[in-house]
């Protein structure tokens, strides 16, 4: 590790964690698009509301996965601290 001490590594880990949760942008946009289309579908066919809602929730939960991977990386960097010697 040379001249870098543990505080420097922890600070860099915090910056990395902050960068990792930027992954939340993608699922946010995707879930918004899904919810918007579901709202349009319910407006066109109000009878199918429960089907549309369950399909929307399923699709949103799958789309959320990539954001959760970013969150997991941030959690690992902050709390498990794999970079410390």
């Amino acid at each position: 590790m040379g001249e870098f001490n543990n505080n420097f590594i922890l600070g860099c880990s915090a910056i990395g964690a902050g960068l990792a949760v930027i992954a939340g942008i993608g699922p946010g946009v995707g879930q918004g698009i899904a919810a918007g289309h579901a709202a349009a579908a319910v407006g066109r066919n109000p009878g199918a509301k429960s089907d549309v809602t369950s399909t929307m929730l399923l699709g949103q939960a799958v789309a959320e996965t990539t954001g959760l991977y970013g969150l997991l990386i941030a959690m690992l960097l902050l709390f498990v601290k794999p970079l410390l010697p």
């Binding site: 939960a61 799958v62 959320e64 996965t65 959760l68 991977y69 969150l71 997991l72 959690m75």
Partner: peptide
Amino acid sequence: ISLSLRLFANVLSGTV
């Protein structure tokens, strides 16, 4: 892996 990580990360984020 994705099935279990999805459930795990969602519950863990709420707990944290």
